[in-house]
Simulated scan of single mutants.
Amino acid sequence: MSAMTALTPVGGVGATRVRVHVPFDLRHSADLRQGFVTAIREGSELLVDISDSTVVDQVGFATLVGAHARAARAGRRLRFTGADERTTRLLRRAGLVRLLDDSPAPSRLRPSLAG
Rank of each mutant, 00 (worst) to 15 (best):
S2Y: 10
S2G: 15
M4I: 12
M4S: 14
L7I: 07
P9K: 09
G14V: 04
G14W: 06
A15K: 02
R17I: 01
V18G: 02
R19N: 03
V20I: 15
V22W: 01
P23T: 10
P23G: 05
L26V: 13
R27H: 13
R27D: 08
H28K: 00
H28E: 09
H28T: 09
S29W: 02
S29C: 11
A30N: 09
D31Y: 07
R33F: 01
Q34S: 12
F36T: 03
V37A: 11
V37E: 15
T38A: 14
T38P: 00
T38H: 12
A39Y: 02
E42A: 15
G43N: 03
S44M: 12
S44W: 12
E45K: 13
E45N: 06
E45I: 06
L46A: 03
V48H: 00
V48K: 03
V48A: 01
D49A: 12
I50M: 08
S51C: 13
D52V: 05
S53L: 11
V59S: 11
V59R: 07
G60R: 01
G60K: 02
A62H: 09
L64E: 03
V65M: 01
G66S: 07
A72R: 15
R73D: 15
A74T: 09
G75N: 11
R76P: 06
L78S: 01
L78N: 00
R79S: 10
F80Y: 15
T81H: 05
G82A: 03
G82R: 01
A83D: 02
D84E: 07
D84M: 04
E85Y: 10
R86I: 13
R86Y: 12
L90P: 05
L90G: 03
R92T: 14
R93N: 13
R93D: 12
R98Q: 11
R98N: 10
L99F: 08
L99H: 00
D101P: 08
A105M: 11
P106R: 02
P106K: 05
S107W: 13
L109K: 05
L109S: 10
R110E: 10
P111W: 11
P111G: 09
L113T: 13
A114C: 05
